[in-house]
Write a protein that binds this DNA or RNA. Structure first.
Length: 559
RNA sequence: UGCCCGAUAGUAUAAAGGUAGUACAACUGAUUUUGGUUCAGUUUGUCUAGGUUCGAAUCCUGGUCGGGCAACCA
């Protein structure tokens, strides 16, 4: 074919519509969150889709809060949602609320009653459920189905006036109780809820149901392509029916498969449980798949947008490997993160032949991935260094390219050292490692001619700053936490958070900027936690580096 | 046992009747002052049975499997 990127099924639909001159070629999408929770990576897919589609076809996207259920909704969520969308890099055309349309919606309902297409039903929820029948048996009309237009009008008015208690009456569409699509069996349109609404206050005590609100809101805004997830497919018939019978702009609904990801859950209900029951610190806990959690973890907007691009869009159920998300953030941070050194599990290395009290200022590139390295920072060096405990082995195997008795390594940006001796405490733990350095092997001016296999990171003991580091692992032990017999929370990974409070970092890291990613050389990508202070620095590990050595050594061990 | 949706490497996603491709993952090797990066290469796929056709992942029919639908939630 040609070399253009192939289109996803939604792009094909839109291009077809444009070709046919539908809506005069206009494209208007919408992102319609309910403000009852924080946005997660699954919403990011929807956001990238809706805003991306509009951008691609010179259209616009409205942000519309679907706030028809006041008992679960809150302004806290409204604010977080707006913040997250902007942070992801998108700007909506208009900020709207379904509650803005309550008056219009009420008039639509009256219109339907007058056309004998809606009626007030006094049945209990149980009775209504029975009246709908089952998927294999048709439903039966309740005695209220034959009420006169006048009576329906009067009762509906009374519902609005607050003359009836919660749950005592509902407004139902009069469609077809035998329809094979359960959603067409006289669906509920309005219910009574004497509840305070975050925007309309106490003006209303009846609230429209999703089906009576969403499509009409789309229509009022003249949305051309209303994109939602698969579970709304059976609602589409009702969506079209309502629009047609009210006689308003024919918005069209299209459905795609929502995002699922391994080792996490993706429903607001379950995420709320994790928050309420304190399994995590909050909606923005770095282990959460929420946008705010990913942000705090150190994910960048670009990496998330990229992820959404790579996972594609289709109509089949899918589970994306969380490894792809990790790939996307590594890809981004590798190119942008400044390199720094930090020792997470310190052990002391003493250079016997380096003069006591001597100091040197060495230099290291900020970013080796960029021409010129984006400048460099000063790194103090001295006789005593912290190195990583795992970079020393008393009895090193052949392929261990680090330190051990008689072995040599390059100290990153500094000298080559050879291990001469080490000290253990009574418990058998290594406490000190003694080395000698090669004076003419200094980075950048090495005339020693020596070649070593390994390079390790380090921090000068007298210059080091202390920090807390938080390492995160997947929140759940199971690829699919919902696959267990019991509660999904039983598969929570008890080791998903590891706090290291004895980490030594190079002095320049005291200047770390919030929101910026750093690569701790050989250890991964890190970012300042939102709770970090100058007195107590806290870094979150966004993601580790790819580690083929860990894989290799694991293989050896299992043989 | 009603209706609706879907099925392409391990995971996603292309191929609009004409060479099954791409990304991630996995595996080899090269480069490397990060066991990172980069580069080169390898392995792995059209649910099934029929039919239409010169030719089927694609169209048709049956089956199988997976998912959804009977909230005063969205």
């Amino acid at each position: 074919m040609n070399e253009e990127k192939s289109l996803n099924f939604l792009e094909e639909i839109i291009e077809e519509d444009i070709r046919n001159g539908k809506n005069d070629g206009r494209v208007l999408t919408r992102f319609p969150p309910e403000p009852n929770g924080y946005l997660h990576i699954g919403h990011a897919k929807s956001i990238c889709l809706n805003f991306g589609l509009a951008q691609r076809y010179q259209g616009k996207t409205n942000l519309r809060f679907d706030d028809t259920n006041p008992v679960t909704e809150d302004v806290e969520y409204v604010d977080s949602i707006k913040h997250d969308i902007k942070w992801l890099g998108f700007q909506w055309e208009e900020e709207l609320y379904t509650s803005d349309y309550f008056d219009t919606l009420y008039q639509f309902a009256i219109q339907l009653i007058k056309k004998e297409l809606a009626y007030v039903d006094d049945s209990t929820p149980e009775e209504i459920a029975v009246s709908k029948g089952t998927p294999t048996e048709p439903g039966k009309a309740t005695s209220y189905r034959s009420r006169s237009i006048e009576e329906n009008l009067r009762l509906f008015e009374e519902m609005k006036e607050g003359k009836h208690p919660d749950g005592s009456k509902v407004l139902r569409a009069k469609i077809d109780l035998a329809n094979p699509n359960m959603h067409m069996r006289d669906p509920l349109l309005y219910r009574i809820k004497h509840a305070h609404h975050h925007r309309t206050g106490d003006k209303w005590c009846i609230y429209p149901m999703y089906d009576f609100a969403h499509g009409q809101s789309d229509s009022i805004e003249k949305i051309t392509h209303s994109v939602c997830t698969l579970e709304f497919i059976p609602h589409r018939t009702l969506y079209d029916w309502l629009i047609e019978n009210i006689g308003i702009f024919p918005s069209k609904q299209y459905e795609f498969a929502r995002l699922n990801m391994t080792y996490t859950v993706m429903s607001k209900r379950r995420l709320l449980q994790l928050v309420n029951e304190k399994y995590v610190e909050g909606w923005d806990d770095p282990r959460m798949p929420t946008i705010s959690g990913l942000r705090r973890r150190g994910y960048t907007p670009a990496s998330i947008r990229n992820f959404c691009e790579r996972i594609g869009v289709a109509k089949r159920e899918n589970v994306i490997d969380v490894g792809l998300l990790e790939f996307c953030i590594r890809e981004d941070l590798n190119k942008t993160a400044w390199r720094r050194m930090a020792v997470l599990d310190p052990v002391k290395l003493i250079i016997s032949n380096y003069p006591e009290g001597k100091e040197e200022i060495l230099h290291g590139e900020n970013n080796p991935e960029v021409e010129g390295g984006e400048g460099e920072r000063a790194i103090p060096f001295s006789r005593e260094l912290w190195i990583e405990r795992e970079d020393f082995m008393e009895n090193a195997p052949k392929k261990f390219f680090r330190l051990g008795p008689g072995l040599s390594v390059r100290l990153k940006n500094a000298y080559i050292v050879t291990c001469d001796d080490f000290v253990k405490d009574d418990a058998g733990n290594i406490t000190e490692i003694y080395c000698s350095y090669i004076p003419n092997s200094k980075s950048g001016e090495d005339t020693s001619g020596l070649k070593v296999k390994g390079t390790i990171h380090w921090v000068s003991v007298p210059h080091a700053k202390r920090a807390e580091v938080r390492l995160y692992d997947r929140l759940f032990k199971l690829e699919n936490p919902l696959a267990t017999e019991g509660d999904f929370k039983e598969s929570i990974n008890p080791e998903s958070l590891q706090i290291l409070d004895n980490v030594y970092i190079e002095p320049d890291l005291a200047n770390a900027v919030p929101g910026k990613g750093y690569q701790f050389i050989r250890k991964g990508y890190f970012t300042l936690d939102t709770r970090s202070t100058t007195e107590h620095l806290v870094f979150n590990r966004t993601v580790g580096l790819r580690d083929t050595w860990a894989k290799e050594s694991q293989k050896e061990a299992s043989v």
